[in-house]
């Protein structure tokens, strides 16, 4: 771990000032990913700005438009077990509980979870090349060990995935990220928050370096019981997703009124295809319709050998998740039988 100074600002403005005056600064909240990466010499900030004392970011409040505003410093645990979240956004609660462990969820924050970095083996190993860690050095994952890598939206420079479970649910729920910077506040829809690697894989999100996340806003809930978060992984808990699916349906009897489907573990960002969701509108819920949707979502998917199975797995997972959502039998994160 490299040497750094630390600041403990007492206000958002002060925090923003700290990062604007120190070019190689990083915010720290729960620290569950940043400290991890600093010990591997992957992140090497020279100045660390501790956000844990900022006032007003640790609460869950009504938005006034029927939605909820989750402060950036709210812990993953607090959000997952909040009665309003459980009641109105059970999909988010479920996705949070599918991720990590109680210890990590107690420390990890909502803002920090948005900024989790990839689990790519090469990104984590400073002795190997990696375009995301060190632009221009290459991507050994493409011809290497890529079991956990992306099948959608990859580039020749990077095939890493975004590892968060929470973000997959937020994408399906069309949450909005509220941020503040030197130019004031702005809102970034989830769909635009994370980016694809393209030729700048070192950049995970569209957040500017001097911006701070204030909150995540959830729109008015609309999916009732018709949702699920289905996560498939190499052991039954405490593992990152090979493929995960967040699905939410607005149903009218057997018919789908509105569908939201986001995939985790398959791309550099939570993967949503609005055109595929459109395909379900007005259709009877059923395997045939779901399969067509899966085809559309996975259009253009490309495997790299070790991860090629994810294409078929994702196809099956989409169908299962939509079946669970349509039936109103969301996947339990405790009972490991898949409904």
């Amino acid at each position: 771990m490299n040497r750094f100074s630390i600041a403990r600002p007492g206000s958002v403005a002060e925090a923003v000032r700290e990062v604007t005056t120190h070019p190689a600064a990083k915010f720290i909240a729960g620290g569950t990913n940043l400290v991890d990466l600093m010990k591997y010499d992957v992140e090497r900030p020279t100045h660390v700005v501790d956000l844990s004392r900022l006032p007003g970011l640790n609460t869950i409040e009504e938005t006034g438009e029927g939605g909820l505003r989750l402060g950036a410093l709210v812990s993953n645990t607090a959000a997952a077990y909040d009665e309003r979240v459980k009641e109105r956004y059970p999909l988010l609660s479920s996705a949070l509980l599918a991720g990590a462990t109680p210890q990590l969820r107690n420390a990890a924050t909502m803002g920090g979870n948005l900024l989790q970095r990839t689990r790519c083996y090469y990104f984590y190993d400073a002795a190997t090349p990696c375009n995301k860690r060190q632009p221009g050095t290459g991507c050994p994952a493409k011809d290497g060990v890529n079991r956990i890598h992306a099948i959608l939206g990859t580039s020749e420079h990077c095939i890493a995935t975004h590892p968060s479970d929470m973000c997959v649910a937020l994408a399906a729920l069309e949450a909005v990220v509220k941020v503040a910077g030197p130019q004031g506040e702005r809102s970034i829809p989830m769909a635009d928050f994370h980016r694809l690697p393209g030729n700048m894989p070192e950049k995970d999100t569209n957040l500017h370096g001097d911006e701070i996340i204030l909150a995540i806003e959830l729109p008015e809930p609309r999916f009732g019981k018709n949702h699920t978060y289905l996560k498939l992984r190499d052991r039954l808990s405490y593992a990152f997703a090979l493929v995960s699916v967040a699905a939410a349906l607005e149903m009218d009897g057997e018919k789908v009124v509105e569908a939201r489907i986001a995939l985790g573990g398959v791309a550099h960002k939570p993967w949503r295809v609005p055109e595929a969701e459109e395909m379900l509108r007005g259709k009877a819920a059923g395997r045939e319709a779901f399969s067509a949707v899966a085809d559309r979502i996975l259009q253009g998917a490309q495997g790299y050998g070790g991860n090629s199975f994810k294409i078929e797995l994702a196809h099956r997972a989409i169908i299962r998740a939509l079946s669970q959502a349509a039936a109103g039998t969301p996947q339990s994160q405790t009972d490991k039988r898949i409904q």
């Binding site: 403990r8 569950t32 210890q103 990590l104 107690n106 420390a107």
Partner: peptide
């Protein structure tokens, strides 16, 4: 493991269990 991957370092911080390996001491003032 020193990376939040095993739980051996679990302690209770303000009553909540957490991985002490991922907490910078200064942030727990």
């Amino acid at each position: 493991c020193d990376h939040g991957q095993c739980g051996s370092c679990t302690v209770l911080i303000d009553g909540q269990r957490m991985n002490s390996c991922l907490a910078l001491a200064v942030t727990k003032d």
